[in-house]
């Protein structure tokens, strides 16, 4: 479904067609993708068209925040690792 949307906007029935999913399952699935901010949909007349939210795709800030989060996680792991080391008997003053 996401692959299809990456190629361009599509209606809900166009999305459901190649998938072995009921229309209601597709709608439910889309609701989750929409809630995550990655997909946006718009109802024009009786057709709901879905597209990937471009702003969510290529934000430098997100990537940078991700770099920071990676390092924070690594340093948590470093703290755990250092805490697991045996005590040293002689301490350097």
């Amino acid at each position: 479904m996401v692959e299809r949307l990456a190629r361009g906007p599509a209606s809900v029935s166009e999305l459901a067609q190649p998938l072995a999913m009921s229309l209601s399952a597709v709608v439910q699935h889309l609701a989750i993708l929409e809630a995550s901010g990655l997909v946006r949909s718009e109802k024009i007349g009786r057709v709901r068209t879905c597209r990937i939210e471009p702003a969510a795709l290529n934000m430098a800030e997100e990537w940078i925040a991700q770099r920071r989060a990676d390092w924070e996680r690594r340093f948590d792991q470093l703290g755990d690792y250092l805490a697991s080391l045996p005590e040293v008997s002689t301490r350097q003053e």
């Binding site: 479904m1 996401v2 692959e3 990456a6 993708l33 995550s36 990655l38 990937i52 795709l57 290529n58 934000m59 430098a60 990537w63 940078i64 770099r67």
Partner: peptide
């Protein structure tokens, strides 16, 4: 850091984000 987003936009959309979205999916 220098983030090279704009230069890689089409590729990033195809490779990176698709992977992210696939994983989410």
């Amino acid at each position: 850091g220098a983030f090279l987003d704009a230069f890689d936009k089409p590729a990033l959309r195809e490779e990176g984000t698709k992977g992210l979205l696939d994983a989410l999916e």
